[in-house]
Amino acid sequence: MTDQIQRFLFDDTNVRGEIVTLEQAYAEVLDRHDYPPVVNRLLGELLSAVALLTDTVKLDGTLSIEVRGQGALALLMAESNPGGELRAIARLAEDAEHPAEDDGFRELLGQGRIIITLDPTDGHRYQGIVALDQDSLAGCLETYFTQSEQLPTRLWLAADGKRAGGLLLQRLPDESQNQDADAWERSVHLADTITPEELLGLEQLEVLHRLYHDETLRVFDPKTLHFGCTCSRDRIASALLTLGQDELRQVLAEQGSIETQCHFCHTRYAFDGVEIEALLADSDQPPPVLH
């Protein structure tokens, strides 16, 4: 099966893992945009990574990964939630030349940073930032886990424009269950032998068997993933209000209405003068007094 994520752990150790495969969700992201092939591949890696991280941190909310660079590729962004919804976009720099097929990660992005945002349904938003100082997206995210989570974590990511996949291994701090002192080093060493072709072409259980047939592995039920956009008329309206009433009324005077679209799914939203004035009136209302 494609478009699923599967959790596994090594019995009697403190090592756990996740493996993800994407096809339809990946295709739906690419079908909505016209990116160069090399950008399509990086988006596939990012989609795999955001799915892996969402399942790893067990967040009840939204997790996003935003890669901002100063090269030809200005932005990569992907978002995921516990419901298995994924979405992603990319943006090329306005004055950039068309990226070459063989451009590498750092060559495409140049200097920059990755911003990882955890936005729980209840609670405070958390952001972690890591520099683009590694040669791959996986390497940068491993640095994030080292700095922010302080948990040894390794990632393997791959995408070819049609399928995307990823593997994550993590050593948990609880040593009480660890009866195998070499488990972490051994599991990472074996995972290092996986090829992108195997990660994309084999079923998930085949990949795990290929790597860990001599290990005692416990595999959990997979979770289905799919493309899903969280845009809505209310969210777009809230975004419009950030422009300020003067600018909104100026656009209305020039165009008669305000039209915009979601960058992720291209759904169009239109607001006429009456709707905009109602939004502005609501935004001016004082908060209710609690007794």
Rank of each mutant, 00 (worst) to 15 (best):
residue 12 D to C: 11
residue 133 D to T: 09
residue 110 G to P: 13
residue 267 T to M: 08
residue 116 I to E: 04
residue 207 V to D: 09
residue 279 L to M: 15
residue 132 L to Y: 01
residue 143 T to A: 14
residue 249 R to M: 11
residue 106 R to Y: 00
residue 110 G to V: 14
residue 130 V to L: 03
residue 117 T to E: 15
residue 100 A to F: 10
residue 74 A to S: 13
residue 123 G to R: 01
residue 141 L to C: 00
residue 222 P to Y: 07
residue 247 E to M: 13
residue 123 G to H: 03
residue 177 Q to M: 08
residue 81 N to S: 09
residue 282 D to V: 05
residue 61 G to S: 04
residue 279 L to Y: 07
residue 27 A to E: 14
residue 120 P to G: 06
residue 99 P to N: 03
residue 286 P to S: 13
residue 67 V to Y: 03
residue 31 D to E: 14
residue 290 L to Q: 10
residue 120 P to E: 03
residue 104 G to L: 06
residue 247 E to I: 14
residue 111 Q to R: 13
residue 60 D to P: 01
residue 119 D to Y: 00
residue 269 Y to Q: 09
residue 203 E to M: 07
residue 265 C to F: 05
residue 72 A to D: 12
residue 150 Q to G: 02
residue 84 G to Q: 14
residue 56 T to M: 14
residue 278 A to V: 10
residue 69 G to D: 08
residue 105 F to S: 00
residue 221 D to Y: 07
residue 255 Q to R: 14
residue 88 A to T: 10
residue 25 A to T: 08
residue 21 T to E: 13
residue 34 D to E: 15
residue 236 I to W: 00
residue 215 E to N: 03
residue 87 R to W: 12
residue 7 R to W: 13
residue 238 S to T: 15
residue 271 F to H: 06
residue 236 I to R: 01
residue 170 Q to D: 06
residue 84 G to I: 13
residue 214 D to Q: 15
residue 31 D to P: 00
residue 219 V to H: 03
residue 73 L to K: 04
residue 135 D to F: 04
residue 268 R to W: 07
residue 175 E to A: 11
residue 131 A to T: 15
residue 61 G to D: 07
residue 103 D to S: 15
residue 55 D to C: 06
residue 217 L to P: 08
residue 196 P to M: 11
residue 133 D to N: 14
residue 137 L to Y: 11
residue 155 L to D: 03
residue 161 G to C: 05
residue 255 Q to Y: 09
residue 106 R to V: 09
residue 23 E to D: 11
residue 167 L to C: 00
residue 183 A to I: 07
residue 154 R to P: 00
residue 261 Q to S: 15
residue 181 A to H: 11
residue 107 E to G: 03
residue 86 L to I: 04
residue 252 L to Y: 08
residue 227 F to T: 08
residue 21 T to N: 10
residue 42 L to H: 13
residue 101 E to N: 01
residue 104 G to H: 09
residue 206 E to H: 09
residue 82 P to M: 02
residue 284 D to W: 04
residue 82 P to S: 09
residue 151 L to R: 15
residue 190 L to H: 05
residue 257 S to N: 12
residue 191 A to D: 09
residue 74 A to Y: 00
residue 241 L to K: 12
residue 177 Q to L: 14
residue 265 C to V: 09
residue 281 A to W: 02
residue 6 Q to V: 15
residue 122 D to A: 03
residue 10 F to V: 10
residue 237 A to H: 07
residue 16 R to P: 00
residue 134 Q to M: 04
residue 44 G to Y: 13
residue 261 Q to I: 03
residue 29 V to R: 04
residue 172 L to G: 00
residue 103 D to R: 10
residue 215 E to T: 03
residue 99 P to M: 04
residue 241 L to H: 02
residue 244 G to Y: 12
residue 64 S to Y: 10
residue 143 T to G: 02
residue 170 Q to Y: 07
residue 286 P to N: 11
residue 174 D to F: 07
residue 175 E to V: 12
residue 103 D to P: 06
residue 170 Q to E: 13
residue 203 E to L: 08
residue 21 T to P: 00
residue 241 L to E: 09
residue 115 I to R: 12
residue 125 R to G: 01
residue 274 V to Q: 14
residue 54 T to I: 04
residue 267 T to N: 13
residue 261 Q to M: 11
residue 219 V to N: 05
residue 67 V to I: 15
residue 172 L to S: 02
